[in-house]
Design a protein around this nucleic acid. Structure first.
Lengths: 228, 228
DNA sequence: GCGTGGTGTATGGTATACCAGAAACCACGG
DNA sequence: CCGTGGTTTCTGGTATACCATACACCACGC
């Protein structure tokens, strides 16, 4: 039943309180629309520790990690502030993404198996151009998966890890659908060309197409997205 | 009256104990030859806290940060272990470095001022090929500075930051001079070509030269360095 | 001699109390 | 009404005590 008041369940699974607090804070921060408020958003250690039902110690460790990741900024005796990314920072993230994914595409032409590359078709052909408008949410997910798939084919765990970090941070941007809205049709064409280059094992072309594709996204964001 | 016993200020410094512990541990870990020992190196929180003269709390926060950065690995109720990078991980780091610096070079051809590019000559012409053998240590430093300078010219703070992280981690490799020893002469030629491409604002060529230069280093490490 | 179970100990995880500094607040004088 | 000084409060930083578990060690039984 709905347990009107036993929601707490302090004794949790096996994972540490720090890890749980970290995950909880992370998703909480990402799911809030940071840019909606005018004032800078501040967190309070004691308040959070009470609401989570844990002491400040593991909570502080979780916050310290978020601080290092750049999601929050801890200022001694002042407070803990949720960080808003500037447009310049977002553009930089997309630039790095372009650098990493284009390198991954390069590696993929040398490292990936033909069957692995072939699987990319499933992610590209999934949507006809007409469907995009109606299923923008789904397409957005598939789009991310496509890029992550290419990055995975590079067989370089560090690139995968760093790219995931970047994608994660970019989730914090409101209206992230704008990333694709007007670019979806072009996007699909680009994707098909990229897959073709990978299949042809054309290293230089694959790298260039991936880079250009992502840098175009950067220019698009630069032109049409306003955050500051 | 008053001031009979005021103004203690024993240790001064404004920085937090956590930050100081972090820096101390960081340099301590990097300056020890991790690969000399056969057994896995373990740290003890209580022991360290006594030797540093601080409580476990700030020490733990410093260690948690090092854990996240990948320098140590904290295992609950087991211990804190200094992480040894595998050869594969080092090769991956060099790969990412190549991706980032080649993108920075690309950006530099579009963003950097002519005067800034011209300053690269000072870092390249500093050594004649004959001097390299005698001044390998200095050359190694100049070499790093050259690459950092190019990365800086890309005017992308995120790339600069991520690259610094990579360079930092690679410092932990013993005999890092092997990175250049047999490659120094070729390195200087490469560097000159890179500067020329930047000066000519040849975006594609600058990117390619930088990438090839660093990927060759990767192959060199792959062939001649043995860590595992 | 060898396996087995219990107990001790070492270690990271957590809770809590206290510290120091910064900001907010308030009383008071002009 | 405004400025100014001190005091109070709120905040993250630090110290410390205790908890839970993985491992080692030893006694005991076979």
């Amino acid at each position: 039943m709905a347990d009107t008041e036993l929601k707490i369940a302090p004794i949790g699974e096996g994972i540490s309180l720090k890890a749980r607090a970290y995950e909880a804070l992370k998703s909480a921060i990402l799911n809030m629309n940071i840019y909606a408020e005018a004032a800078e958003l501040r967190l309070d250690e004691r308040d959070l520790s009470q609401r989570f039902g844990v002491s400040r110690t593991p909570l502080r460790e979780a916050l310290a990690q978020l601080d290092q990741e750049g999601l929050v900024r801890i200022v001694a005796r002042r407070g803990i502030f949720i960080v808003r990314k500037t447009k310049a920072q977002i553009l930089d993230m997309i630039t790095v993404w372009a650098a990493l994914e284009s390198m991954a595409a390069r590696l993929a032409t040398e490292q990936a198996g033909g069957d692995e590359i072939a699987q990319l078709h499933a992610l590209v052909d999934q949507f006809s151009q007409d469907e995009i408008a109606r299923k923008m949410g789904e397409y957005s997910d598939a789009n991310i998966k496509f890029h992550q798939a290419i990055i995975g084919l590079g067989k370089c765990p560090l690139i995968v890890e760093m790219s995931n970090d970047l994608f994660f941070h970019m989730r914090a941007i409101r209206q992230r659908t704008i990333f694709e809205q007007d670019r979806a049709k072009r996007s699909i064409v680009d994707h098909k060309e990229i897959v073709a280059a990978l299949e042809a094992r054309d290293t230089e072309r694959a790298e260039r197409l991936v880079r250009q594709h992502t840098l175009r996204l950067r220019d698009h964001v630069d032109r049409y997205v306003n955050l500051d």
